[in-house]
């Protein structure tokens, strides 16, 4: 009983925290209180007020609006990254895990090497090759996250390929493709869900990290990482410029990781 209540607690707190960041982000995709790109000299580094609840940044842009747009960008890139990683990772993992053999061996050696590199570094290399920008960042992170999903999905397929339900599906005349994607795939979802949540968090942090380094989302587009790096210059006078996007980032990651805990 006591244990169940603790799990509920993680779920409730996780949902609340996720909602606090995703709802403004979703709104920020279509509407923000102020235009996020118009600069206003008279509001430069303005303090918090009723009109601007978090104040304004060094260009006089409303911080709340910037955070809303930045969260939206971060959210979209996180989702896109996970999508690319899961779809391609599942496909490669399914094929190599199901068939095995030499191709599997070669792929797995390559995959293990990729996996041993921090995804932030991999993405950094891809950005160096492809150039910086939102779309490039999305692909760089997506590719960088493929190896981890290949690993998880492949392990499931290796386990499943000799199981009775797979054998009977084959005896019943199902094609390899059908066995792989109709019979085995749904059984990987439970494990995949957890790694999707962890992967989303890692993608959000990697996006923020790359944008912080100035090679991710490019100005004037808002991104939580970029805002943090711009805020460093004004840290002494206006620490809020760093704290607001930073705390938003933490709440986003914390909420999702609590949701992931519930799944265990």
């Amino acid at each position: 009983m006591g244990k169940n209540r603790r799990y509920d607690f993680n779920l409730i707190l996780g949902s609340i925290l996720t909602a606090i960041t995703t709802v403004p982000a979703l709104i920020g995709m279509i509407w923000t209180p102020y235009d996020t790109h118009t600069m206003n000299n008279s509001l430069k580094l303005a303090k918090a007020s009723l009109m601007h609840p978090f104040g304004c940044d060094n260009f006089g842009r409303d911080l709340l609006s910037r955070v809303m747009e930045g969260s939206a960008t971060t959210l979209l890139i996180g989702l896109g990254t996970v999508f690319i990683g899961v779809v391609i990772g599942t496909f490669i993992g399914a094929l190599t895990g199901y068939y095995g053999g030499l191709v599997d061996d070669i792929f797995m050696r390559f995959n293990d090497v990729m996996f041993s590199f921090p995804s932030l570094l991999l993405a950094l290399v891809f950005v160096a090759v492809m150039g910086s920008g939102k779309i490039q960042l999305l692909f760089a992170l997506g590719i960088a996250f493929i190896p981890s999903y290949v690993r998880i999905v492949r392990a499931e397929y290796v386990r499943a390929r000799n199981m009775d339900y797979v054998k009977s599906a084959k005896l019943a005349g199902a094609s390899d493709m059908r066995v792989m994607f109709v019979h085995i795939l749904p059984n990987t979802f439970k494990i995949l869900l957890n790694s999707v949540l962890i992967g989303f968090n890692n993608a959000v942090l990697a996006e923020a990290g790359l944008s912080f380094l100035g090679i991710g989302v490019q100005p004037p587009d808002a991104s939580l990482g970029r805002m943090l790096s711009d805020a460093q210059t004004y840290l002494f006078n206006r620490p809020g410029l760093a704290i607001v996007p930073g705390v938003t980032l933490i709440i986003m990651v914390l909420g999702i990781s609590l949701l992931g805990k519930r799944e265990k």
Binding site: N201, L205, A208, G209, F212, G225, L228, S229, A231, Q232, L235, A242, G246, L249, I250, V253, L254, S257
Partner: peptide, 12 residues
Amino acid sequence: ITMSVPPFFGGI
């Protein structure tokens, strides 16, 4: 909570 703080924000 600490787990969710990215190093660059921790640094700030």
